[in-house]
């Protein structure tokens, strides 16, 4: 009873700047979201700093080197229709990841509608697209390694190109791999009714979705700074 009163009270709490002051000073939980979601956001904030450090380090070594920087547009070109199409594989990878972000967003929505079947299949589709992305990255790595790109040297220009490339895309690929496993675990739990026993609460799908969208978000920055710049 008293909880219901608290809830209706929460509904009239101020928004905007006054709301921030109120949220931090009302002697209650600050963020009006489930703890799992708040913790995922804080984890993603720390991950933001890790990826920023990699990208800033990449910027720093690229400025500092006196050797010519390899042209990513040529290095990552792929042969199609008898021509070298610049950055083709990377573009396809980008679209695969965006598609997976869309299916994940729909899975979150279906989760809140308690449509377990649709949630399960959309999450499996997201994981499959993620696995496709990682496979394409493995192909990309194989190709570059065969062409002589190493973390310490490469035939196309500054040695720092290889170290930045393997470090940044490797760490991102690891995140995607972890995400695929995470999504599959949650998806199968959704299907076998694990969350039905916990009050049919599907917030967990949104939390997993936050992680997945973050992986896509990081790729947006990698694509802009590493591949296009």
């Amino acid at each position: 009873m008293s909880e219901a009163v608290m809830d209706s009270e929460a509904a009239v709490e101020p928004d905007g700047k006054a709301g921030v002051v109120n949220d931090f000073s009302r002697d209650k939980q600050v963020f009006g979201v489930p703890w799992g979601k708040a913790m995922m956001w804080i984890f993603l904030l720390s991950d933001t700093f890790i990826f920023s450090c990699f990208l800033v380090a990449y910027m720093s070594v690229r400025i500092a080197t006196t050797d010519p920087w390899p042209n990513p547009s040529e290095v990552f070109a792929l042969q199609a229709f008898g021509h070298d199409v610049p950055l083709l594989l990377i573009a396809i990878m980008t679209f695969v990841l965006i598609t997976s972000s869309g299916t994940m967003a729909l899975a979150v929505n279906m989760g809140y509608r308690k449509n377990r079947k649709a949630t399960f299949w959309l999450m499996v589709a997201t994981a499959a697209l993620g696995a496709t992305f990682v496979s394409m990255q493995a192909f990309e790595w194989t190709k570059l390694i065969m062409e002589g790109v190493r973390p310490w040297e490469n035939p196309f220009g500054a040695a720092q190109f290889g170290s930045s490339f393997f470090m940044i895309t490797g760490f991102h690929g690891m995140h995607v791999t972890a995400g695929v496993i995470y999504l599959l675990v949650i998806a199968f739990r959704v299907r076998n009714g694990f969350y039905e026993k916990r009050g049919a609460n599907y917030e967990i799908v949104e939390i997993a979705g936050l992680y997945w969208h973050f992986v896509d978000l990081v790729w947006v920055f990698i694509f802009a700074f590493f591949y296009l710049w």
């Binding site: 963020f31 979201v33 708040a38 969208h213």
Partner: peptide
């Protein structure tokens, strides 16, 4: 991605900040 897909646009200002 952050505003729509991650629903940040609908969160309270305290979390956004």
């Amino acid at each position: 991605i952050v505003w729509i897909f991650m629903h940040m646009g609908w969160e309270r200002l305290a979390l956004k900040l």
